[in-house]
């Protein structure tokens, strides 16, 4: 096999099987024509080397025939990127939750804390790799299955009149979709735990992988507020989904957001001023492994609502104030620079 044969074989490795033989024959014909014109022989290795160098690297020559090939092409990539961001954000949220739950039952000494942190990080990494692989696989299949014509048609059919039904964007877009999804995810989680697994909230420990409760944390007074809590959480979840779909703030969503924040603040203030939200007395801890520190635990538990709700009230107040400020802020400036 001479150098030209080997060169053509190399080019052929990067060509689609369908028309490989035809392209190979044409390249051979051209190379021989070029040698003939130079009055050189295919057996003259030095001349052939010079010719092949001029003709180009086999991969480059093959690429000129087949064009760029994508696993996920330009039409699917923006959607792929968005899905990856959302999944990564949700996985990160789940990891934080798992990490938090792991800390509840763990001994918070240095090595144990680091072990829990390490396990959570490994779980996240593992989850990210698996999710990334699956998403790539799905999009690679879609890239090959979805006809390009549909995509082109969608672009051709785009009508600027549709912009009229879009909400009026004001000063800024909402945070990334990941941020909204993580927020909504946590609200759903809170809703499920408070309504379905309230027994999870209490003083307990992990025993052979199971959460064993010693004393429930929340009082009956707390659960008497559940209908209001549920209504507000459901409204916030619905609002989060609406914002996600809209992609930008508008006057109506800003007002709705302020009202929701104010309603949440009002409920939290009423809850704090009412009967105790926790039911953790030293008597309840008597006879448990925490009996020796019952006083300390009881006082700490009774401070908890003030601490948690206090922080949430402060954050909600800041967000409501920001909402009011943005509501009355002047209309956005043109994104285009002024030509002087």
């Amino acid at each position: 096999m001479n150098l030209i044969d080997k060169y053509i074989t190399e080019v052929g490795k990067h060509l689609p099987r369908r028309n490989r033989a035809d392209i190979e024959a044409e390249i051979r014909s051209t190379l021989e024509d070029m040698l003939e014109e130079r009055k050189q022989s295919p057996s003259d290795d030095a001349a052939v080397i010079e010719l092949l160098k001029e003709y180009g690297a086999p991969r480059k020559v093959a690429e000129s025939y087949v064009g760029p090939r994508y696993l996920i092409g330009p039409r699917m990539y923006p959607l792929f990127e968005m899905v990856i961001r959302i999944v990564a954000a949700v996985l990160f949220g789940v990891m934080l939750l798992v990490f938090g739950l792991g800390l509840i039952g763990a001994n918070l000494s240095g090595p144990e804390f680091l072990k829990t942190l390490g396990n959570s990080a490994l779980s996240l990494l593992n989850g990210l790799i698996v999710a990334f692989g699956n998403i790539v696989l799905v999009f690679a299949i879609l890239e090959r299955v979805l006809p390009a014509k549909d995509f082109e048609k969608e672009l051709e059919d785009w009508d600027p009149k549709e912009l009229a039904s879009e909400p009026e964007p004001d000063s800024e877009a909402i945070g990334g979709p990941g941020e909204q999804i993580v927020g909504t995810f946590f609200l759903i989680l809170v809703l499920i735990v408070l309504n379905v697994y309230p027994e999870w909230l209490g003083v307990g420990f992990f025993d052979e992988g199971k959460w064993v409760i010693i004393a429930p944390l929340l009082s009956e007074a707390f659960f008497s507020y559940m209908p209001w809590i549920n209504i507000l959480i459901v409204l916030q979840i619905g609002f989060g989904i609406y914002l996600l779909r809209q992609g930008a703030w508008n006057m109506a969503s800003r007002i709705a957001n302020i009202l929701l924040e104010l309603a949440s603040i009002a409920l939290m203030v009423v809850m704090l001023l009412g009967p105790s939200l926790v039911d953790m007395t030293p008597e309840k801890l008597a006879g448990t492994p925490l009996a020796d520190v019952a006083d300390f635990f009881s006082k700490g538990a009774n401070l908890l609502p003030w601490l948690v709700l206090g922080v949430v009230i402060i954050i909600s107040t800041i967000e409501a104030a920001q909402g009011v400020y943005r509501l009355f802020k002047s209309s956005p400036r043109s994104p285009y620079p002024v030509i002087k």
Partner: peptide
């Protein structure tokens, strides 16, 4: 360039 011409012909 031949790497331009042949793919163009095809």
């Amino acid at each position: 360039d031949q790497s331009t011409l042949y793919p163009l012909l095809r």
